[in-house]
């Protein structure tokens, strides 16, 4: 086996979550036939990763949200890795932003940090339970549970 490019692209948590959810569905459909023998490793990592990811904000995202988020992040001049972390973790406090954005004291003013927190909170859906379930959020939660 040969590794051609050890870092072809970074994946957001949402992409991995979607891929694994689809794969799980596909394997469920095809039933527990003889083909699934010897796939314990795949099943283990799929189960554990999904368990971890379903507790992160990515379980409530979709392609439109991700796209909108990246568009609204354009004027902030952040690096790819920084935007990825904001997307994956949905920071809600200034101290978290300062962790994820390198040299944030020099690059961002206090107002800009406030603005960032606001955009992140507006664009990315939060945990409905934590935010005392606004009606729209509650619907979304149901949709997530059903899927």
């Amino acid at each position: 086996m040969e590794v051609k490019n050890a870092n072809a692209a970074m994946l957001s948590n949402y992409e991995v979550f979607k891929l694994l959810t689809d794969l799980k569905e596909k394997r469920k459909d095809s039933g527990k036939n003889k083909n699934s023998a010897g796939q314990q490793n795949l099943n283990t990592i799929m189960y554990e990763t999904l368990k971890y990811l379903s507790k992160t904000p990515c379980s409530r995202q979709n392609p439109e949200i991700v796209k909108e988020f990246l568009t609204t992040m354009m004027p902030h001049k952040l690096t790819k890795a920084e935007k990825l972390q904001l997307l994956n973790q949905r920071p809600q406090t200034a101290v978290e932003i300062q962790l994820m954005v390198e040299e944030s004291e020099e690059r961002l003013s206090e107002e800009q940090i406030e603005e960032l927190i606001q955009t992140v909170a507006d664009v990315l859906p939060g945990d409905p339970e934590q935010e005392n379930a606004a009606p729209a959020d509650a619907e979304m939660e149901e949709a997530v549970q059903q899927s």
Partner: peptide
């Protein structure tokens, strides 16, 4: 956190 890796294998 996750990356894509290009590989070749037989």
């Amino acid at each position: 956190m996750f990356v894509l890796v290009e590989m070749v294998d037989t």
